[in-house]
Structure formats: structure tokens, C-alpha cells
Design a protein around this nucleic acid. Sequence first.
DNA 1: TGAAAAACAAAGCATTTGCTCAAAAATTCA
DNA 2: TGAATTTTTGAGCAAATGCTTTGTTTTTCA
Lengths: 211, 211
Amino acid sequence: MQKITAPKKAPLSRIQEKNRNLILKAGLEVFSKYGFRGATVDQLANAAGMSKPNLLYYFPSKEAVHVALLEELLENWLEPLIELGPSDNPIDEILVYVKKKLAMSRAYPLESRLYANEILQGAPNFSGAIKGPLKELVDEKAKLIQSWSDEGKIAVVNPYHLIFSIWSTTQHYADFDVQIAGILPTDKEEITKDAETYLEHMFRSILTPKA
Amino acid sequence: MQKITAPKKAPLSRIQEKNRNLILKAGLEVFSKYGFRGATVDQLANAAGMSKPNLLYYFPSKEAVHVALLEELLENWLEPLIELGPSDNPIDEILVYVKKKLAMSRAYPLESRLYANEILQGAPNFSGAIKGPLKELVDEKAKLIQSWSDEGKIAVVNPYHLIFSIWSTTQHYADFDVQIAGILPTDKEEITKDAETYLEHMFRSILTPKA
DNA sequence: TGAAAAACAAAGCATTTGCTCAAAAATTCA
DNA sequence: TGAATTTTTGAGCAAATGCTTTGTTTTTCA
């Protein structure tokens, strides 16, 4: 009987490596701006600086580029939450998570918008990840947070909604960037600084047990 | 000299009224799901239950439907914030705003996603509204909140970021609905109830002055 | 160095898309 | 009622879109 193996992944050549990266970078730009259906292969090829057939030489379809991006995204997206772990000072532990999330919003706004677009449109290529690894991770961390509540180390809060509020407030600065810039036409540096101060204050308030 | 008047708006006939509404309803469904570029006139006509040329008899283009929807949306979106006004009990005044916003997210998720789509994609048809009426309204309310801070009636917070955090946390329940449903497969009623409890608690915490 | 393999792109193909045309059907109202 | 008006649509058109075909250029490596 023949051994069933994972599809052979020949190591990528130098050129393959370079071009796949160019395409993924282009896909990030274009998909995050227009969503999957709004993006065209022409736009992708243009942004990647190569011809359309050449792009399709590296990825079999527009959808394949999109899926590859989402897969890559998931890891990076989960990472900060994975790092949230047991601590003697749970409040600071959670605040560190908030700061990491905010920093990611700032450093990777396109990734944030790519993710937001996918979820907004019903997560057609992502619902597996949501109900699988994402849910498991959140369930696990929710338990941890719940235990901190039970031990009186942080205030009593619904851990799931706490996590949702961290996600929403931090990602807002990437996803609704245009709106924020329209309302606060000051420089981004200052907005980010104020956001960090505000969010730290807010989450510290809700997490600090009432005397 | 002839008087310059606004373009004549003949009152709409019964049929016109009905069909324009059908089209706007269809547009809300389709645009909120796929974004402007991802939506097609065929989808719109289908969802509206009429032929493509007939739809284009009522609106000159796909974009016109989109713009009409956004204009209608703006009013409803601003309304709850407009109602935020002077009060002897500023904390409750703000909490009422939070609750209204959350209720809107629950009652009009498609509208919320339509808005989110537009902002995410750079607000190509909305940047005027953001820099105009929206900014003015937010500036005004920020001053009000700042005055409450100054008078010691609420804690010291950055009023702009407070408003952003109210928007992001409440709209999250509409915009990221798929993600939340994937993580919390309980019934929506309960999620909404818990969300309200959590958010009320959170904003009360940050707004209550430290003794 | 030269033949095999990999990388590339001009042209093209079928389908979709946004919108129009011309004419038919339905409605209005004198 | 019947002529004028409004509403509706089948057919179609040019452009865009996703992807392929075909063949050329570049790279690899024995």
C-alpha cells in the first residue's frame, strides 16, 4: 500500500519566494481596500508589478491569493492572545495584551482591515478558523480570566465580552482610520499616544476590583 | 432675472414610492454584505424583485443607490449622539447613549455593516459627511463631555477617545457578528443582554470619578 | 555551453457587468 | 373610454473580469 503523504512541497526557489511575497503584499493592499469581490486580478498584478498570467502562474486563482493571505493572517492575529498567560499581576497582564493589540493595529492596519473585510462579509473563507482554533483559544483564555475574577484578583467581568471590547477598541483605530482622521485632524503620533492612555485607563478601571 | 430654485422634486407617485423603497431595501442587503464594488446591479435587481432596466429607471446608476442609502444612513446614525445633552447626571446620560447605540447595532445590523464597509474602504462617498456634520457634532459633544470632566462630575477622560470606544464596542456586535456567533454559540438574546451588562459596567467604571 | 526547466507575457476567450435602446404593457386622467 | 403618460422589460452593447493559450525569454545546472 502506498504511503499517503502531504502534497509535496518542493522548497521554493529564490524567484518563487520573491514573487510569491510580491503577490501576497499586493493582495494585502488590494483586498484590504476593496474586499475580495471588489478586487480584480488586474489590480493585483499591477500592484505586484507583474503580468496577469505570471501572477496566475504562482497562484491558481484570485481566491487562492486571498486564502493564502488569510491563513498567514490568522497566526499573527492569535499570537498576542496566546501570550496572555498566568501572572501574579493579572491586570497588568491584560493591559499588556491591550497594548500589543493596539500596537498591531498601528503597525499592521492593512492586515486589520483585511480581517475586518472578511468578517464583515460573513467570513466566507474564515468560518472554519473562527469556530476552530479561534474559539478554542478564546475559550481557554476566558477560563483564565474567569479564574482571576473568582480569586478576586480582578473585578468580576464577563471574560468573553472583555475580550470583545479589547478587540473592538483596538482594531477600531485601524479599521475606522478614515473616520478618526476626519474627526481628529491632528498627527497620528498623538492620536496613538492618547488612544493608549485612554484604553489603559479604561481597562484598568473596569478590571480593578472595587475596594 | 429668473429665480434659481432647487431642482423640482415632483412628489413621488405611489408606485415610485414603493419601488424606490424596494430598491433601497435591496441595496441595504446587498451593499452591506458585499460592499459597493462587490455588489452587482443584477443582485440589486434580484433582491428588489424587478428587472435590471426597471431598477435603473428609478436610480440612474448603481452608485446612485449607494449614495442614497448613505445619505439616509447618516441621519439615523447621528441621532442618538445628537440627543446626548446637558444633564444633572452625566454618567447616566452617557450610559443612555451607550445603550441606544447598542440597541441600534442590534436592531439595524445591516445599516451598521453598510457604514463599516464604506469606512473600511476609505469612505469614497462619505468623507464629506465625516469632515462636515459628523466632525462638528463630535466636536460639540466632546466639549460637553470635557466640561463634565472639568466640573468633576465624571472622571477625567479624553472625550474623543471615549466616543470612539463607545462606537467601536457597540458596533462590534453588528459588524463582527459572525465572529461573535462563532465564539459564543449561545442565543443572541443572551449575548445582547450580557453585552449590555458588560458595557454598562465598563463605561460606568471609567466615568465614575475616583472618590 | 547548451539543453532542459522555469519564468514570463501578448493575445485571446468566455463570462460578467454596468448600463441603454426600443418597444410593449400598465396606469392615469380628461 | 381612449389618448397621454408612466412603468416595465427583452434584447443588446461596450467594457471589464477571471483565467487560458501559446509561445518567447530567462535561468538552471549537468
